[in-house]
Design a protein around this nucleic acid. Structure first.
Lengths: 122, 122
DNA sequence: CAGCATCCTGCGTGATACTG
DNA sequence: CAGTATCACGCAGGATGCTG
């Protein structure tokens, strides 16, 4: 059961939603994970697609986004405990149930915000 | 045609979406407007529902949210030019097309975030 | 009534360097 | 490889008072 703080926020779905997906990368991370688990470094690279010149995401930032998503119960972290380190992130059932919502968002955005090509960029 | 800055963001629907609905109240405002136009003061009061003890939204903040939504093309401002002032905010067609998406968000949130009672609180 | 002007605070984001 | 530590900064959000 995800901990979403303050009692009154649990009464307000959209507020809770906004808190949960606040941050520039959370939605993109979820979307990228729908095709299967990915490692930290893979996600890091994925998040550059769609913005060529953009500088890489700061490790600190990605780290926090992932932790937040995990604590929300949307993704799970699996540490293989080997060296060199190998860690995978995957969608939880709850996270997977959220994908269609992101899909709706993307479809709407593509239709009304000029983002053609639903294929690749997140 | 809404202006959503920087070319690369127009390529990324979810990024554009997040930018568009960033801010604590934008989604709630849109949701509240689906039943018809509302005046500034009415919105102000609406935004308190679901959080009793909460202090009122700062006028400065509400003002900015409304301006941003208007510039995104989701809502329209109608000034009646009378005194005392009367201003109404209503959904544009684009804004109305967005309501179902918010609906999906609320449904998901209600199901997975413990926010029962889809009736009133936004 | 519908805001604007001003000040203040915390946090989200980024850049860089370092580690087990 | 998968992060943590540290520093820096802009901006969202709140509080208060004033105005046409």
């Amino acid at each position: 059961m995800p901990s979403l703080a303050s009692n009154h926020i649990r009464r307000c779905p959209v507020a809770a939603f906004q808190k949960m997906i606040s941050g520039k990368y959370k939605l993109r991370i979820l979307w990228d994970l729908q095709d299967g688990p990915q490692r930290y470094g893979e996600l890091r690279k994925s998040l550059l697609r769609g913005a060529e010149g953009a500088p890489a995401i700061a490790p600190r930032v990605l780290s926090r986004e992932l932790k937040a998503l995990a604590q929300s119960g949307l993704i799970a972290r699996k540490d293989y405990g080997v060296v060199p380190p190998k860690v995978e992130y995957r969608l939880t059932p709850m996270g997977r149930s959220f994908i269609p919502v992101v899909g709706e968002i993307r479809k709407w955005g593509a239709r009304h915000l000029g983002g053609e090509r639903l294929g690749l960029a997140s």
